[in-house]
């Protein structure tokens, strides 16, 4: 089963939930965690899996053979991202704009374009006990996280249980990470910001046709109603509440996983994962 952990808003505790689930399950069974928040990959701060191998992520970018090029301008015309310009007798390539689609090299009438790999990030793999961590990391200054996310996802093993830590927001890199999962857990907090961003995330999962449930982080009796009411109206289950608690926040700040400190939390996450696997998606838990 593939479960993606998303949140419209950043900093709601997505990584806390993803790593807690993965660590709790890994005590009994093998599981993969995919860190697809490639702009800020943080899951391994909690998982602490020693990295054993790394694979660079490339985008194939055009290189022009000046001897063959007739300056016809076809490449610049077909490139949808303005990554190539032909100026009188020169062809300029702007590598950061190139999506590596391959159109220019295929369509060049003189076969003057070959592709060279340009690195934009890296995928790293590590293990800790039953847990396999696959994390993507976008190089600084690179604008496009999607190729890195795509690469990370090629490691997902459908035979196993997989937890995906997704970037915040609802734009294309988020869709790329969430796509193909069997269930999406949306992490939010009981504030108007949390509610607004949650409703955007729900819209996204509905567009993708993926069932979802909500975890309320920094829950507080006086405020939770805001989210619970929305969930009731939208027929989305509230799966778990993690209280607004200074001790939990402090553990988090030190990178200490909650589930390794407190058995009741480990059990809560285990029960939640079991319920998801059994298809009992509408059960609410309170640890």
């Amino acid at each position: 089963m593939i479960v993606s952990i998303a949140s419209g808003k950043g900093g709601t505790g997505k990584t806390l939930v993803a790593t807690s689930l993965a660590l709790a399950v890994s005590k009994h069974a093998s599981i993969q965690i995919l860190d697809c928040d490639v702009e800020e990959p943080n899951a391994n701060l909690f998982v602490r899996a020693p990295i054993e191998s790394a694979e660079p992520v490339y985008i194939p970018t055009p290189q022009i053979d000046a001897d063959k090029c007739s300056h016809c301008g076809r490449c610049a015309e077909v490139c949808a991202y303005h990554a190539i310009a032909v100026i009188s007798d020169k062809v300029l390539v702007f590598p950061e704009l190139c999506h590596g689609c391959g159109a220019c090299s295929y369509l060049c009438p003189e076969s003057a374009i070959v592709e060279a790999n340009r690195q934009v990030g890296v995928v790293e793999i590590g293990y800790r006990g039953n847990l396999e961590l696959i994390q993507g990391r976008l190089d600084i200054g690179e604008p496009m996280p999607t190729p890195v996310i795509r690469k990370v996802k090629t490691y997902a093993d459908r035979q196993k249980d997989v937890v995906i830590d997704v970037a915040p927001g609802t734009s294309c890199p988020v869709v790329e990470a969430v796509k193909g999962s069997d269930y999406s857990i949306l992490v939010t907090e009981p504030t108007p910001f949390g509610l607004n961003d949650l409703s955007l995330a729900v819209e996204m999962t509905r567009d993708l046709g993926i069932p979802c449930g909500v975890i309320i982080n920094r829950a507080s009796l006086s405020r939770d109603n805001l989210i619970e009411e929305y969930c009731r109206e939208s027929e989305i289950p509230v799966l778990l509440k993690i209280p607004f608690d200074r001790d939990i926040a402090t553990l988090y700040s030190k990178g200490i996983p909650l589930v390794e400190r407190e058995t009741r939390w480990r059990n809560a996450f285990l029960d939640l994962f079991d319920a998801l696997k059994r298809g009992q998606l509408y059960v609410a838990y309170n640890a």
């Binding site: 800020e40 943080n42 200054g141």
Partner: peptide, 17 residues
């Protein structure tokens, strides 16, 4: 920035940009 382990690494990357 937030004084958490992830906050530090995120800050470093933001400074990098």
């Amino acid at each position: 920035a937030e004084p958490t382990m992830s906050g530090v690494s995120d800050l470093e990357r933001a400074v990098g940009v």
